[in-house]
């Protein structure tokens, strides 16, 4: 279980450029839950993603994973950034998935299959020959192969076309079902929120504006939406 209590964060605290990104965020995410954090640009959602992944310590409050502060050395958390190339550190797909770990070929192939890439086709491909969508899948394979307890996805659908989005959403559902890990997705695109999680946390100006089932949030923010959208028909409704 992830627990955020009174979490606040100020960038460049104590300097003339101090900027508050989060304030008084209380959030609990149960193990195995799929939560989507929605907010406009500057709402603090990416800051929350970094705090949940343990990449930063909040300047106020705390973020605990199963009652303890997040320790990166335990490899309990993973994050997938929008710009996947920045997460790929080795020249070939298989060597990148192995980065920082000793893994048998079988595990690497399983991870590739899980993210929808044919191991025989992709194992020895160079990461710079891959498309943006394929790089994102490889980055995700590198993240989930460590079996983290929490997977954070920062704008997972940004920059993908409709078929790419559908494929990624299907893959994320598959990964969640098989690995049963807690998944927190961060997006500004309310239209796809219903497909990324069961519960939506809306951030506005660094504060939690609402925390409710995703269908309620979609209804509240897009009153004309008659029903939950599908991956192919989801409108690109931004929160602001």
């Amino acid at each position: 279980m992830i627990e955020c209590s009174g979490v606040g964060h100020v960038y460049a605290a104590g300097s003339p450029w101090a900027q508050r990104a989060l304030e008084g965020v209380d959030l609990t995410v149960a193990s195995g839950e799929r939560v989507v954090v929605v907010g406009s640009n500057g709402s603090g959602k990416s800051t929350l993603a970094w705090l949940l992944a343990g990449l930063m310590k909040p300047t106020e409050g705390y973020v605990h994973l199963d009652g303890e502060p997040i320790d990166l050395t335990k490899r309990e958390t993973a994050i997938s950034f929008q710009h996947a190339r920045l997460q790929l550190f080795r020249p070939t797909v298989a060597s990148d998935i192995r980065f920082g770990m000793q893994l048998p070929d079988r595990t690497v192939d399983d991870a590739l299959a899980l993210v929808g890439l044919d191991p025989d086709q992709f194992r020895d491909r160079k990461v710079d020959e891959l498309s943006g969508g394929e790089q994102r899948r490889v980055a995700l394979a590198g993240a989930i192969v460590r079996r983290p307890r929490l997977l954070v996805l920062d704008e997972p659908l940004a920059g993908l076309d409709a078929p790419g989005r559908k494929a990624l959403i299907d893959m994320l559902r598959r990964v969640h079902a098989l690995a049963n890990m807690t998944v927190v997705s961060v997006t500004h695109d309310l239209g796809y929120a219903a497909l990324l999680g069961d519960r939506a946390v809306v951030l506005q100006r660094g504060r939690v504006a609402s925390d409710s089932p995703v269908a309620d949030v979609v209804r509240a923010y897009t009153p004309s939406t008659p029903s939950a959208p599908s991956a192919e028909t989801a409108p690109s409704a931004e929160t602001h």
């Binding site: 992944a53 990449l55 990166l72 958390t77 920045l86 550190f89 980065f99 993240a143």
Partner: peptide, 8 residues
């Protein structure tokens, strides 16, 4: 950040 997560 990605490096720290994958190679703590």
């Amino acid at each position: 950040a990605a490096w720290r997560l994958r190679r703590p």
